[in-house]
Amino acid sequence: MSELIPTFEWHRVMIDPWTIDRELYGWIAVMGFLVTTACGLVGNYLILRRMALMGDAVSHSVLPGLVIAFLFTNSRGTGPMFIGALAAGLAATILIEAIHRKTRVKQDAAMGIAFTTLFAIGVLLVSIYSEHIDLDAECVLYGEIAFVPLEPLVSWLGITLGPVSVVRMAFVLLAVVALIVGFYKELLVASFDEALARATGVNPTWVHYGLMAILSVVIVSAFESVRAILVIAMLILPGATASLLTDRLAVMHGIAVVHAALSSWLGVSLGVWLECSIGAAMVVAGAGVFTAVWFVTVFWRWRRQAGNVSSRPEEVATT
């Protein structure tokens, strides 16, 4: 066990990544923050709309889209990958709707059927073609955030912006923020009250498909740095933490951003300490933050209830 968990050296774990090794871990932390923020903001809506597991479904369903896009264009360029992911994500959404609207199979089962089928097709395509082309399920689905600093830097107008995937993720995040700001009211009303949305001229179906499209894009751009399953954690954890603390959507967004910053900061340290995958460490850190918040809220409620119980006899005595 002692060789499994390295000793915790404060300076090496908490200070060095931000000073001596800033070149290396700085970009990893920035990338982690960008990915988790984009996922967290979209994830808030998934949680509100009770489709938290859509992230799970879409993140697995995009695989065949990516493979087919790759087979057609023979490149792993951003454009084809995004289009493939978008098409596959929407196909998964349509399949799920087709199964659960036309039959008595419930939505969660429909989700399970649709995404596993698409994922299986993707894995099969990869293994059929993997001998002839440079592509495997690992490199499509399972990026590693530790490789981010090794990427070529992008500069614009003489200013060095950062590694390619960081710049790309920043653009995706900007797009997500712009869409949320631009369609805040529509998203809000369609998420909380479909009937009101319809009455005020917002089409909930379009909002649903739009959200799924954004989700597909965010997920595929996140794949660059984290494993598929970790994207799900990043989609759910910030929003779940936020919804323990607040009722208001705008505040939820704010808490999600704070959670993203915390989990990428702590995640880097955890990864350095335990010498494990940094992407996974970020999720573990985020889960730790969630657990802390959960226990604190339960403790508060317990204390409040205990307070109420002890104060009750006094009330009875005074009346």
Binding site: L4, I5, I47, R50, M51, A52, L53, G55, D56, D108, R227, I229, L230, I232, A233, L235, I236, L237, G239, A240, S243, L244, L274, E275, C276, S277, A280, A281, V283, V284, G286, A287, F290
Partner: peptide, 24 residues
């Protein structure tokens, strides 16, 4: 939290812990 959120949360967090352990 709704059951689906709780499921997704546990699914992904546990998996991340497992992944950390495996890489270790």
């Amino acid at each position: 939290l709704k059951p689906d959120t709780a499921l997704g949360l546990v699914l992904a967090s546990f998996f991340a812990v497992g992944l950390c352990l495996l890489t270790m």
